[in-house]
């Protein structure tokens, strides 16, 4: 088993923290993993990304070579396109369709959608809307939508959520589970 995942978004939106949950599940399954991220100046409202690599074999590089990512998981649509050079030919983009506009020259959404449409495998939906109805974080919804392509069973991801949020109380676990399932259902549509 080998999965290379690019997680991307905008500094401060927390998308990179999703890697922690996937990592927890992967470790439990006895997989090797490497996850690289960027700190410092680039965090401040700019584009951010993290590379998460899972494999049953030894993993060498901390970063994914171009053209090798199985999944791009993005918290907003333009950032998903920014990492296209990393996407493998049969790879999947899972992205929030709701743009995060913190620059004056954010491009026309029609153009972004047209570019996304050119990609072979895309799951794009408004994760913010779904998250709002269950008062959860959209990142968790996006994680749910990624699970079918992850090579990790839903149950293993649930265990990881229990493990990571367990000490914050049943309510927090519950909200995150709901978000996970909502995303999972969305991806199957």
């Amino acid at each position: 088993m080998k999965k290379d995942i690019v997680l991307c978004g905008v500094g401060g939106d927390g998308i990179v923290s999703v890697a922690k949950i996937i990592s927890d599940a992967a470790l439990n399954m006895g997989l090797n993993l490497k996850q690289s991220e960027i700190h410092g100046m680039s965090q401040r409202g700019g584009s951010v990304f993290s590379h998460l690599r899972l494999s049953s074999d030894e993993i060498f590089a901390d970063v994914i070579p171009e053209g090798h990512a199985d999944i791009i998981l993005s918290s907003e649509p333009m950032e998903a396109l920014r990492y296209l050079p990393w996407l493998a030919k049969d790879g999947w983009i899972i992205t929030n369709s709701d743009p995060f506009v913190n620059i004056n020259n954010y491009p026309d959404m029609a153009k972004i959608n047209a570019e996304l449409a050119k990609v072979k495998n895309v799951v794009s939906f408004n994760a913010n809307e779904i998250a709002k109805t269950i008062k959860a974080r959209s990142n968790m919804v996006l994680l749910g939508a990624t699970v079918p392509y992850l090579g990790i069973e839903l149950g293993k991801v649930e265990e990881a959520i229990n493990h990571i949020f367990g000490n914050k109380g049943a309510e927090v676990v519950d909200v995150n589970m709901k978000a996970l399932h909502a995303g999972y259902e969305q991806a199957k549509k």
């Binding site: 409202g45 090798h68 950032e79 570019e115």
Partner: peptide
């Protein structure tokens, strides 16, 4: 190997 190029529509999002 390489994936597709970054589409032109993608604009810079510098840290701020």
């Amino acid at each position: 190997e390489s994936g597709a190029a970054v589409p032109e529509v993608v604009t810079n999002r510098p840290p701020a």
